[in-house]
Computed example of a mutant assay.
Amino acid sequence: MTEILQTPKLVTVFGGSGFIGRYVVRELAQRGYLVRVACRRPDLAGHLQPLGNVGQISAVQANLRVRWSVDRAVQGADHVVNLVGILAESGRQKFSTIQEFGARAIAEAARSVGAGLTHGSALGADLNSRSNYARTKALGEKAVLETLGNAVIFRPSIVFGPEDQFFNRFAAMARLSPVLPLIGGGKTKFQPVYVGDVAEAIARSVDGEVAGGKIYELGGPNVLSFRQCMEEMLQVIGRERLLVSVPWWLAGLQGAILGRLPGKLLTSDQVILLRSDNVVSAQAENERRTFEGLGIRPQSTAAILPTYLWRYRAAGQFTRRTFA
């Protein structure tokens, strides 16, 4: 008898060329899925090709502000993953456009083709937040669940990994500056989560192993203050730097100024975000809407940071010692 080969399932990943996206694409490719990466600049997504076999990963142009491009990107998809988000507004890239209306557009497009949906949000999402970022993240979640009640939503804490914009940014600063700023005294708490663990959780949702209609909160094994994050980073790169506390009023002023400059090193909205801890809630832990409930053991900063921050050491990989 002739064996009938089953066509691999197709997954459309919006924002698949970004930091978290590339790890999600890799996990899906390793599982044998066909992956369609929907992004604004598919010509800049060539770095994804080596993550899968020939023809397994393709990139298409899609812009959340242009609804027909979203509909086109999900045609024929069995599952849709939305990882699009911005940390600062720029030009026509607005929080409400991308994180609220964009999330609804993707959910409606997924519903129209009968595809499942996994939505990437963030810890701190709050309908009542003074932060535009946090509020629109929550509005995006609301739009998704109103459109597709069985969607899976993940809220990770601050995500770290080789391409992150947190530890890398401050490590690069430490190479040039004798001091590092601690906004609000560095007391804000985080639960840093490794990007590979987040990608594994998302891939499992695509596999159908995660119950839908719920919001899962993803945090690493350790809760660290901003100061502790900086101290651990400095120890890994073997540099001694003065950690200077920046009061909230001054941080707000700096955010107002720097937020208007190219690069947006700090914005007023980010200062507002830093006033609240970014850790997994007790309710999520009790209801097992966490890594533990997903059967994933998250990796710590101590295990991962040395694998990529070594390039900020004085002698790179040849540095023999780090400061205790």
Rank of each mutant, 00 (worst) to 15 (best):
E146D: 13
F291L: 09
L218N: 09
L242T: 07
E27H: 09
E217R: 04
D164C: 09
G15S: 12
R288W: 15
A73M: 10
L28C: 11
R320C: 09
A38T: 05
G252P: 10
I237F: 09
N82I: 02
T307L: 11
G252K: 09
G213R: 12
F19L: 09
G116Y: 11
A59P: 07
A199P: 00
L127R: 14
V11W: 14
T97K: 01
W249V: 01
A109E: 13
R204Y: 03
V37G: 05
G213D: 15
I257F: 15
S157R: 06
Q75R: 14
L145H: 04
R26D: 12
D43M: 01
G255M: 02
A115E: 02
A77K: 01
K142V: 10
C39L: 08
L180R: 00
R311F: 14
F323M: 05
Q6W: 12
N63L: 09
R36G: 12
E240W: 06
S157W: 03
R155P: 12
F160H: 15
V13L: 11
V113S: 10
Q6G: 14
V246E: 10
F95I: 04
L51W: 09
E108I: 02
T118P: 08
A201Y: 02
F154A: 06
Q61M: 05
V11A: 08
T7V: 07
A302V: 10
M173R: 04
F190H: 12
R155T: 03
E240F: 09
G220R: 07
V271G: 10
R72D: 15
R169G: 02
L176D: 01
L87H: 08
Q30C: 10
A174I: 04
G120W: 04
